[in-house]
């Protein structure tokens, strides 16, 4: 087979164009002088006073730029909702990935609570150590993924509870923000005592927000996993 057949002229031209573009981009970017004074350093300086959180990334995510996180949670919700619209639920739905293995089933029974607990731990310690709402939420969702893989069609999620979790965790985030605003501060501002750096019950509003974020992410990703793992098989249609 000739090269022309395998690759095609258009592909080559495209590749040339894009490489040229990347080269130009690199040329410009390499010239740049990276700045050493930035928003991040300013925020580091005031981090201890304003949040008492041991993890500066958490402070940024949940507090200094909490609104971005709200937007991100919204996007997550929106996508999952959009996926839900597109996928019709019907009786022919089945788990397309499933391993019928007793060992796996028993192991999963043991592991599942541990995974969820670990996820909750990661969420709760978001302001103290690396980790946080997203990471913990995804860990919890991975527990559910394990359940789907192990039990297949016989595992049933209570969708009512799940959607309630989804709704309440998202709403909780916003309501905390509004409460803060009503308490006299800014939206998502800190209205709780900051506590002492390094303690679990510290940093005011941060852990609360991260818990909501974590639950939201866990619920959304679980729904996502269910949508994808349990669909009408494309090949059937």
């Amino acid at each position: 087979m000739s090269l022309k057949k395998t690759v095609g002229l258009k592909t080559i031209l495209t590749a040339l164009l894009i490489s040229f573009m990347s080269m130009l981009l690199l040329g410009v970017i390499m010239n740049a002088a990276y700045t050493h004074t930035s928003l991040g350093y300013d925020l580091l300086k005031i981090n201890t006073i304003s949040t008492q959180s041991a993890n500066a990334v958490t402070s940024v995510v949940t507090y200094f730029r909490g609104l971005d996180t709200l937007g991100e949670v919204t996007i997550l919700f929106l996508s999952i909702f959009g996926i839900g619209i597109g996928i019709e639920r019907s009786d022919r739905m089945k788990t397309i990935l499933g391993y019928d293995s007793t060992l796996l089933k028993i192991g999963t029974k043991v592991l599942f609570p541990l995974i969820v607990l670990f996820g909750l731990y990661i969420i709760a310690h978001g302001h103290l150590s690396p980790g946080g709402g997203f990471q913990g939420g995804v860990i919890i969702a991975s527990g559910f993924l394990l359940m789907f893989l192990a039990y297949g069609d016989s595992y049933d999620l209570d969708h009512k509870v799940l959607s309630l979790f989804e709704a309440l965790s998202g709403a909780g985030f916003i309501l905390v923000g509004i409460l803060a605003a009503l308490a006299g501060g800014a939206f998502l501002g800190n209205m709780l005592p900051l506590g002492v750096l390094g303690k679990l019950f510290s940093s005011g509003i941060l852990p609360i927000i991260y818990i909501f974020v974590g639950l939201k992410v866990a619920a959304e990703i679980t729904v996502l996993v269910e949508y994808f793992i349990r669909t009408q098989d494309a090949r059937d249609a």
């Binding site: 928003l39 300013d42 925020l43 005031i46 304003s50 507090y63 200094f64 730029r65 909490g66 609104l67 803060a180 501060g185 800014a186 939206f187 998502l188 501002g189 800190n190």
Partner: peptide
Amino acid sequence: ISLDSPLS
């Protein structure tokens, strides 16, 4: 928003 300073 959230922090009462131009950094937010």
